[in-house]
Amino acid sequence: MNLTLKIWRQHDAAKSGQMVTYHVEEVSPDMSFLEMLDVLNERLILDGDDPVAFDHDCREGICGMCGLVINGVAHGESRATTTCQLHMRQFSDGDVITVEPWRAAPFPVIKDLVVDRSAFDRIIQAGGFISVPAGSAPDAHAVPVKKEDADAAFDAATCIGCGACVAACPNGSASLFTAAKITHLGLLPQGQPERAVRAKAMVEQMDLEGFGGCTNTGECTAVCPKGIPLDTIARMNADFLGRRG
């Protein structure tokens, strides 16, 4: 199929950018979205043009590097997938597709579609860890954990830190990301001693980075490739307000 792409091009963080139109021909429906961009880039390179910069690494939905706003939706319209897992069969011949970077002040554009997500690293550094000398791995049954808690903690731990929640949130809030880590650690015995301090420190860092506040719109969960539930944010709020439960 033949497609028209409107892609955000920006030389570097200092320069301003604009949307540029490209045509890609003979796209196979079996290609992933990133492979389709590879095809475009090969042609741009042959023509002596600057290829479109975009982030990617594993290309199998586990690293969280890729992330594009496709037709106004983070990671494209198919649910619970990353951009690298989005296939061209979701589109039809003649489609016009807009491709934009994550838009948030704490995620400055480095080049074209690549943004700097180190703000997330700093939120984790503020409290997304457990300060105990862990030693070697204990026996799996040494500390009993309820099955539901283990499952919920694991679900929260599947967050890959891609940033789609921020990109989709009308407030540019990083609450889902922050809440996922707070839930993951807060549900497990090892996370208890620092539970209240962790929530305070991580929320404070999230605010300092310049993310917006949550108004429970639910846009984040809807686009999250891992389907992190909105309930994690309720848990983050409870921990922040110093309530247990």
């Binding site: 939706v73 934009e100 838009r103 002040a105 407030n171 108004t215 846009e219 809807a222």
Partner: peptide
């Protein structure tokens, strides 16, 4: 919220949830 997103999306962000809330 306004400070967190100084540059808007060119293609109107399409709501994937309730949408009308904000």
């Amino acid at each position: 919220a306004a400070r967190a997103r100084p540059v808007r999306y060119a293609r109107r962000r399409r709501s994937q949830a309730g949408g009308y809330v904000v």
